[in-house]
Nucleic acid binder design. Structure first.
Lengths: 405, 405
DNA sequence: CCTCTTAATCTAAGTCGTGAAGTAAGGAGG
DNA sequence: CCTCCTTACTTCACGACTTAGATTAAGAGG
């Protein structure tokens, strides 16, 4: 993103305008000028370019205060299309979005075997992508790329999206180049950790919207995290940042985690650990997963002491971990999601907020709000599709690219 | 830092060149062009401007491979001057730097009373600044500003350096506007937390140099931290980020901290806690501070079991805390300093590295190196002076500023 | 003295954003 | 229907910028 020539300047302004349009959906030229800090003349130029490229259109007008009506500007939804894939525990979901991030199609494939490996991913993912593309031949011309939300650490060199490598340590896979996970002829492929894509989705369109400094935590079987600093996702040196589940919080003591260590956050408040604790109170075997957790929450709401104890304990640990994060990153917003979080927290949000405030330092501790994720679990694919969208937004205008080639 | 007009463009290129010059001290035009990704012509233009402004000078030439000699470019050290202040536990140190960050002068004033408050700071700081300025009347014309490294959270609105407020919760002070801490007529004042300024110093000229993602931890009486992500210090929503000392690592258990909570990192590995543990083993009362710690380290190196145990325990806890940080931010480098760190770690660095690797996840855990701070304790003022330096670098050329006024 | 090599600068051309001036588009009043 | 007014947007002349390529600077070797 180095700006050096006057041409880069134009491209950067184009990016600014396009980004603002994607975020607001619809505006006017004057508003755009104010939001992007550009002169009206520049906005006219850039917008004309965008209209030329079929990315933006005028949709009627709004009466002004006594003068010429204000033209309403909107994205031309069909101007670009993105594919996003959620490679999850049970299968792979591929979704097709237009420029307004409307979901046009979805294809889900369960893994053929219980615990899939790179080979199964390759097959199912390729098939799902092909199926969606076959159903929508009209978008081929405007298809920007395919984003993958993957389970595990996705490592890449700075700025080299391609040549990324997936390390799914907890699934026991060998390091796998992302290129081996999918063959999508003619498509640029982007990849990131699923929690990161979800955090980006919340940042663009969800509960973290507008917050330059936020923390998005996902509570499920595992514990995921995306940290946003200064409007950007923290990726670290090689994109492995945001691994929160194995934060040691019990100092040598505490339950044993799947990773072999003791005192990991996940070993306290991962879904399995929560239910295990409930079981240990003598509750009748409630199984695993969503139903069991629902039963726990219902029992707690019904006033059952054992269940209340388990939930309280979970909130305690979560609050400590969040408070540590608050002290460290001074966020403006904490966003909580994941299926466990979305089941457990709606009724306890204020309680949790209170605990986190109490456990963090006075200053950073008084500056955040706690929100729940806007999107239920299936926004990993949406977030993944935001990677090609970002690339599209950052790209110089279509014609020039064509001319360069 | 929004670039919108062509003028901003020039200024940004100027900034790039100047920054590179400050970092490298001396270069040539061609190297500059490569480093800044600018064309030779642009570099010539910008450099001419800088020479005009008295900030850069040609200092002889290097023979080239058979052709015209290459002109050596260097900063004109006298082109600008900065003041940095370290407001610490024992007193205030004010230092004067030139553009090459040579320290030209230093003035230290102890607090008149044991625990100073805002009023004493105002007096001592003002006197020290005045003394240094009086001794160097020749720098007045090129004095850019005064940077303060303060003990406590410095809060400010995004981009509003002025109007910052100091919250020194642990010193028991009421929130104090930075403007009330110093009167420095005619000087622009910048302020930040001391740990942050030190981290910035290490980032510019010390052990974290060249690392875009790093973590700088300071071990002393308290525990400080500066996190660098993507080449920039993480400040959080209001600049309160990086509070690491009160990270709860003992989950409800653990020693009681000065802040009232239990299990804080500082309560394990703060200087006081370390020495307290040693005392608990029956060691003869060794006092407090540097001498006591030195005695502990010496005893450990001499093979005294109790001392070894205390040091090992300290490293254990530190390793856990660092591993958590590694998982979270995936740094390329960990830099350790503070007087405790600098006494304790030189002989145990590899040991600590090993422990952190073992406790962190495989991927982020295999990508960092551990370094010790280059600057002994007194680099807070240097780091503080980097704030005005940064402002100077980011500023458009002198004449235009004069013209605008 | 000439030629060769490399470094730095200059020149012409092209691009960009801006502010001022001009145009478009509606409403109000006659 | 016409004129005038208001507001929204566009055009244009201008200055500032970068760049590619030509030119000059400065030494080495023959």
């Amino acid at each position: 993103m180095t700006v050096a020539t006057t041409r880069d300047l134009r491209q950067q302004n184009r990016t600014k305008v396009l980004r603002t349009l994607v975020l607001s959906g619809e505006t006017t030229r004057a508003t755009l000028a104010a939001d992007c800090e550009l002169s009206p003349a520049t906005v006219t130029n850039v917008v004309n370019e965008l209209i030329d490229d079929g990315v933006v259109e005028e949709i009627g007008s709004v009466p002004s205060e006594g003068g010429r009506p204000i033209a309403r500007l909107a994205l031309r939804a069909a101007g670009a299309h993105m594919l996003g894939a959620d490679v999850g525990e049970r299968g792979v979901a591929v979704e097709l979005f237009d420029l307004s991030m409307n979901r046009l199609d979805r294809e889900f494939r369960e893994w053929p075997v219980s615990m899939a490996g790179p080979a199964e991913i390759h097959e199912s993912l390729g098939a799902a992508v092909a199926a969606v593309r076959a159903r929508h031949p009209e978008v081929e011309a405007t298809l920007v790329g395919l984003g993958l939300g993957l389970p595990g650490v996705v490592e890449r060199d700075h700025e080299h999206w391609q040549e990324a490598t997936l390390y799914a340590q907890n699934l026991g896979w060998a390091p796998t180049p992302v290129g081996d996970l999918v063959s999508a002829p003619g498509l640029e492929v982007f990849a990131d950790n699923g929690a990161n894509t979800l955090a980006v989705a919340e940042m663009w369109f969800g509960a973290a919207r507008g917050a330059d400094d936020a923390v998005v935590a996902l509570l499920g079987r595992g514990i995921g995290l995306g940290v946003i600093c200064g409007g950007q996702l923290v990726r670290g040196a090689l994109g492995a940042a945001g691994e929160w589940g194995h934060t040691k919080i019990g100092l040598g003591a505490g339950p044993t985690c799947g990773c072999g260590a003791t005192g990991c956050l996940e070993a306290y408040i991962g879904a399995h650990a929560i239910l295990e604790r409930w079981r240990a109170t003598g509750a009748q075997e409630p199984g695993e997963g969503w139903r069991a957790l629902s039963a726990l929450v219902a029992a707690a709401e019904a006033g059952e002491p054992a269940a209340i104890g388990v939930v309280d304990e979970t909130l305690d640990v979560l609050a400590v971990a969040l408070a540590n994060l608050v002290n460290l990153t001074n966020p403006e917003r904490i966003v909580l999601g994941g299926w466990v979080g979305l089941r457990l927290l709606p009724t306890r949000r204020d309680d949790l907020t209170e605990r986190v405030r109490r456990l963090s330092l006075h200053r950073p501790g008084s500056q955040f709000t706690v929100e729940l994720c806007r999107f239920e679990g299936d926004s990993v694919a949406l977030g993944a599709a935001l990677m090609p969208l970002q690339a599209f937004i950052d790209r110089p205008r279509v014609r020039e690219r064509a001319a360069v080639r």
